[in-house]
């Protein structure tokens, strides 16, 4: 019993220390005058690696999630004769919830784990240390471009996910199940509010982008520089980031749509 309480305390302290180190890392990376002009090629490269290379998985998942939503929604709506509400159902589920959340989960698995492994390996092979000894700050040079790349790319990916999902819903609902095409779009237009639904969804995805990217970078930067340590850090990135996204999603949903 005493041991378990001790363990709980130790875990809490460890988590808090980790949060502290993550904050320090972020502070070190972002504090001071950014030099995007001198390092623009680094930023471009990271946006390509983190964002563009994640496009395929986002497109495919978005399409299928939209299709499934339409299929599932149609069977329920048809019972009440409300098939024409399929458009808003697909659009609202995606914009408010599934777009930001699923994108963040996929992003954590696809880009987050890669960031952690890359930085962990740079640490293990002393590349970060040698950079420091060359009087180049690895926080500025390695962490900052990756941070901005993540925060910029993920909300854009979420928007693409939404758009493809709505098209997927159209594909199943209209082209296959025979919902009226005009109804699909006009009901969506009438029921989706820009401020309430689109903007809130974007805000969510920005918050998730921040969370996932910071966790991935911190786990890599803090990794024990051995092969075991890096594999652990990569797993932790996916697990912690996914849980954090789901937790924050609940909080944000309660604040945005709960009242």
């Amino acid at each position: 019993m005493l041991k378990q309480i001790q363990q709980l305390g130790a875990n809490t302290l460890g988590t808090l220390q980790g949060l502290g180190r993550a904050t320090l890392m972020l502070f070190g990376a972002l504090w001071g005058r950014p030099r995007p002009l001198k390092n623009w090629h680094l930023y471009m490269k990271q946006i390509y690696v983190v964002g563009v290379l994640s496009l395929l998985i986002i497109l495919v998942s978005g399409l299928f999630i939209g299709m499934v939503l339409a299929l599932q929604g149609y069977t329920v709506l048809a019972k009440f004769g409300a098939e024409q509400m399929l458009g808003p159902l697909v659009a609202l589920s995606l914009l408010r919830e599934l777009g930001p959340v699923v994108t963040a989960l996929l992003f954590a698995g696809r880009a987050g784990s890669a960031l952690t492994a890359e930085i962990g390996l740079m640490k293990a092979t002393e590349q970060l240390s040698s950079m420091e000894m060359m009087a180049v700050d690895p926080l500025r040079r390695v962490i900052a471009p990756r941070f901005w790349a993540g925060v910029i790319s993920m909300p854009l990916l979420a928007l693409i996910f939404n758009a493809v999902g709505i098209l997927g819903g159209h594909l199943v609902g209209v082209d296959w199940l025979g919902v009226d095409a005009g109804g699909y779009w006009s009901a969506m237009q009438a029921n989706v509010d820009f401020q309430q639904d689109v903007v809130n969804g974007v805000i969510k995805s920005i918050v998730f982008a921040f969370i996932v990217t910071v966790i991935a970078l911190h786990k890599g930067f803090d990794a024990v520089p051995t092969s075991e340590g890096i594999s652990q850090a990569t797993t932790q990135t996916v697990v912690t980031a996914s849980l954090a996204v789901l937790g924050f999603d609940f909080v944000l949903t309660a604040v945005m749509f709960g009242g």
Binding site: T125, S129, S130, E132, M133, M134, A135
Partner: peptide, 12 residues
């Protein structure tokens, strides 16, 4: 540090 430099074991 600009005046010193270090050769790491792994080359890095």
């Amino acid at each position: 540090r600009k005046k010193m430099s270090m050769l790491f074991q792994s080359g890095a």
